[in-house]
């Protein structure tokens, strides 16, 4: 392939991923409201469009048309920069997630991942560790006590859970012997899903993912009864929409990561058995990936409307005294499996 072809193919993939992400984010908000309504025995949005299907667009236009207020005490450049950092981090992570096997289109062999990087998982870890900045800068630059407290809380929370997240991933890496996401997916061929082989690591990773995305039961950075609105108290209009978008994009990323690392990525043993090959099989694999991600997203929302918020000290205790040791136990467990079964 020439450089021009590579650039064009990459651009098409990036465009595809961004469009899918943006629509998913919009409809995720809709489904969040519908599922919360279902959990609380209400109806939920049903005025705009058929069963409220146009509600996301109404919400977006409402946010766009609002006045953009910047407090006097705010540090203007950082106040503007913060939502963009948050958005950049959540969208850039998607680059290394494989959503299907290689396909052959018009004679080109195309891998269904935006960037097939050797150190993909480290790239993900680097970006998630940068995610703290968006929230921290937002908290500090607003010049408000509530925002600052929210920002400080979030940095402490995210740093703490990054540790157990990293150690849970170590278990996956021991089995796949590679940091390349495609290799990790291939290593989970058949029913060798990491969620089945190493259930403890799966649990610690999912819990850390909840903490990293600031979702309930760990949404302390924006806990509204204590901190008004947390780090985005002083944000309005499109900048607020930026944080909102980033939170939901982070949820999608977390679900994609859980599926890639623990639920076999795009693999589907049923398709393997059925003996289908070619385009049909590829489409089925991509569909299984999307289905698994959709299920994880439903799980995220389901948990939010079922479990109350943790207190701050409980959150820290859970992170350091429960999740971190469990992640270490998981590494020993995986190492023992490799020793005994020569995996």
């Amino acid at each position: 392939m020439s450089i021009l072809e590579i650039i064009v193919i990459s651009l098409i993939k990036i465009l595809l991923v961004v469009i899918v992400m943006l629509t998913t984010v919009a409809y995720l908000v809709y489904f969040e409201r519908k599922i919360s309504a279902w959990a609380q025995n209400r109806i939920g949005p049903n005025r705009v469009g058929f069963h409220g299907l146009l509600q996301p667009f109404a919400d977006v236009f409402k946010l766009l048309l609002k006045e953009d207020i910047v407090p006097d005490a705010a540090n203007r450049p950082l106040h503007t920069l913060a939502p963009f950092i948050a958005l950049f981090v959540s969208f850039a992570t998607y680059a290394v997630i494989p959503f299907g096997p290689s396909v052959n289109i018009f004679g080109y062999d195309i891998k269904l991942v935006v960037a097939d990087v050797n150190i993909g998982i480290l790239y993900v870890l680097a970006l998630t560790s940068l995610g703290v900045y968006g929230i921290t800068f937002a908290g500090w630059s607003s010049g408000s006590k509530y925002s600052l407290l929210g920002g400080v809380r979030s940095s402490a929370q995210m740093i703490s859970y990054e540790v157990s997240m990293g150690f849970s991933i170590a278990g996956v890496l021991l089995l796949s012997e590679s940091l390349r996401p495609i290799d990790i997916v291939n290593a989970q061929h058949g029913w060798m899903w990491n969620a089945i082989v190493q259930p403890i690591g799966f649990i610690t990773f999912v819990v850390s993912a909840f903490a990293e995305t600031n979702r309930l039961p760990f949404d302390l950075p924006e806990a509204e009864p204590e901190l008004v609105g947390g780090y985005h108290t002083e944000y309005s209009s499109f900048k607020f929409a930026g944080f909102f978008l980033a939170e939901y994009a982070n949820m999608i990323i977390a679900s994609c990561l859980i599926v890639t690392l623990y639920l076999g990525g795009w693999q589907n043993p049923l398709v393997d058995i059925s003996g289908l090959t070619g385009t049909v099989a590829t489409l089925l694999y991509v569909a299984s990936f999307l289905f698994k991600v959709a299920f994880m997203l439903f799980f995220f929302i389901w948990v939010r409307w079922s479990i109350p918020r943790f207190r701050y000290d409980q959150l820290m205790n859970l992170g350091w005294k429960v999740m971190f040791p469990l992640a270490l136990v998981n590494i020993i467990w995986v190492a023992a499996l490799i020793m005994i079964f020569n995996l």
Partner: peptide
């Protein structure tokens, strides 16, 4: 991040 934490 820890530096920022202290500075803030």
């Amino acid at each position: 991040v820890l530096f920022l934490f202290v500075l803030m």
